[in-house]
Amino acid sequence: MIKALIIDDEPLARDIIKSYLKDNIDLKVLAECSNGFEGVKAINDLKPDLVFLDIQMPKINGFEMLEMIDEPPHIIFSTAFDNFALKAFEANAADYLLKPYSKERFLEALEKATQKINSNAPIATQKIIKDHQESVEILDRIVVRFGNKIHIIGLETIRYIQAQDDYVDIYTHEGKYLKQITMKYLEAHLPTDKFVRTHRSFIVNIEFIDKIEVYDKESYVLHLKEGQKISVSRSGYSRLKEVLSF
């Protein structure tokens, strides 16, 4: 028996999946969720084998939701239209449904997923998330998990970001948030006119820079408006120079 979840913000979109599944005795729908927040909780609580997941949803989209889950299950994605998502799916031969889809198309996707689940095939979801992250050119927000809560960070509230092994600490006026992501990824996907990598371990929002001082021959130190000091390497200094044009 396959345990499944349906996550979609439109009730009629959930209805059609349920009606396509009506005669299926090998699959049980454990719950329906109407947004990503509910989705994270349901996946963590119910540990489904398979999730029918819509991408466009309020506040956090399907991919941002998956980033919040440590070991995401098999996913059958559905979307009306999303170029970035399609790239990620095709790169991973993932099965996805383009709305509106026929019952035949739906059952075909379900059959493939069922085979993977029954044969204990490796779950490709993490790879899909990564590929999708790469295909998004510029981030406009960062979604983090904070205890049991999900928090959406607007870029303009980020003061600076500090590397911590495989993680980063994101500092905002509300405190710091931990996120599993690389500095290299952030440097490439944050808007380059607002964020500067000043050092191997630091990315700074230029809005919050107070002043930059010489530390010794090879390095500088940057003061934020709230008083924190940030290390600046030589190459970081030249990047700052370019963005702030001084």
């Binding site: 439109e10 009629l12 979109a13 209805d15 059609i16 009606s19 466009q56 009306a80 239209f81 383009l98 709305k99 509106p100």
Partner: peptide, 18 residues
């Protein structure tokens, strides 16, 4: 707008059953 039109059509598709 693909989101509007395809999601609306998906609603239609769902309603034809229910």
């Amino acid at each position: 707008n693909p989101h509007f039109i395809f999601n609306s059509l998906n609603s239609v598709s769902s309603l034809t059953i229910t």
